[in-house]
């Protein structure tokens, strides 16, 4: 799958006579997802990551841009044609209790995708529902239940089952573990990794939790105010972050180890993410960037290859050394382990 120059602007009405402002939720985003890999997308609220997820599945229409799925641009296709592609994509949302119809049994929830896509044979439907429930670690006893009778972890398993029951190629996971407890998070992460391996799935994994993203992803893309600022192989990004925003995120992540404390790494974090309405000119991060120079205020940086498939959108990518902010997290990721 290739995404090219994708843009989504939402109008914000300010008054009856005024021209609307535009929220540039996703602004000229280009990237590729390879078969069988997990592409992680990280960013804070307002970075456009959820809008991007909805765009990829064509749940909303892009303002401009192209989305190639297996060589076909699915932005221009007809409704009927789109249905064919829907079958090959699935989505899992953050809040499992909101993503399941409260008035639909688990069995019915899982049957719907099959029926919509023309699988009408009752025996086959039943067999596939049972099969998928088993794959996500649930069983026959859950079929007749309703979402509110399941725990959060089980609900998320059902949502995952619904996303993969049509044997899709691509699954978009929008913060699938954020609303779950730590001990349940691990169960779901294990399940996702196993399913990917068994069914040869391609994932787009969206999250604000850096540790989770690094765990599941092969490559990670960092978004800031609708723009892609850095994309690299997962461990490379954590070890060798080039964009000051990536370094800021990494340094702000709370580390579960009392030996390496915040306050020292903290100096990089400045200000709050500005609103995506009328973002700053030049590099959008420059007002919060301690390394900003005059060029950053006027000229928007583009994604450049800095070697080994590592792309950064920063004018000073080559000269900055940000490792002092990120090494703490890297050390914990690679070393700390309870025996």
């Amino acid at each position: 799958m290739t995404v090219e120059g994708l843009r989504k602007y939402f109008p914000v009405k300010k008054g009856f006579f005024k021209k609307p402002d535009w929220i540039r939720a996703v602004d000229d985003v280009t990237f590729q997802v390879f078969k069988g890999e997990t592409l992680g997308i990280v960013g804070e609220s307002g970075s456009g990551k959820t809008t991007l997820a909805k765009l990829i599945l064509r749940l909303i229409d892009p303002t401009t841009g192209k989305i190639y799925f297996d060589g076909t641009d699915i932005v221009g296709v007809s409704k009927k044609e789109l249905r064919k592609y829907r079958r090959r994509m699935g989505i899992v949302f953050q809040d499992p209790s909101a993503s399941l119809n409260p008035r639909m049994s688990i069995e019915e929830t899982l049957r719907r995708p099959l029926i919509v896509h023309g699988i009408k044979d009752r025996e086959e439907v039943r067999r596939r529902v049972l099969d998928i429930l088993q794959k996500v670690g649930l069983g026959k006893e859950h079929m007749k239940k309703y979402p509110h009778q399941l725990s959060g972890g089980q609900q998320q398993r059902v949502a995952i089952a619904r996303a993969i029951i049509l044997n899709p190629d691509l699954v978009v996971l929008d913060e699938p573990t954020s609303s779950l407890d730590v001990s349940i998070q691990a169960q779901i992460l294990n399940l996702l990794v196993k399913l990917q391996h068994d069914l040869n799935l391609t994932y787009i994994f969206i999250s604000h939790d850096l540790l989770t993203v690094r765990y599941v992803s092969d490559r990670i893309a960092v978004m800031y105010l609708g723009k892609l600022v850095e994309i690299a192989e997962a461990d490379e990004l954590f070890y060798n972050a080039k964009h000051p925003y990536t370094a800021t995120l990494l340094s702000a992540a709370p580390i579960p180890n009392p030996e390496v404390r915040y306050v020292k790494r903290f100096s990089l974090v400045r200000g709050e993410p500005p609103s995506p309405i009328n973002p700053p000119p030049g590099c959008r991060f420059h007002p919060r960037c301690p390394y900003a120079i005059s060029r950053c205020r006027t000229k928007e940086p583009v994604l450049k290859d800095v070697g080994g498939g590592h792309y950064v959108a920063c004018h000073r990518a080559e000269e900055l050394d940000l490792s002092e902010y990120t090494s703490g997290l890297w050390k914990i990721i690679t070393e700390s382990r309870v025996s």
């Binding site: 079958r87 949302f93 809040d95 909101a98 409260p102 639909m104 719907r112």
Partner: peptide
Amino acid sequence: NREFVLAARAIGESDLNIMLRYLLPNVI
């Protein structure tokens, strides 16, 4: 705007089906 309606669209449900099977039961 709840996610289960989005999810229904993502699996390709028609508008009529979304109204009858997803929205109406929740309004009853």
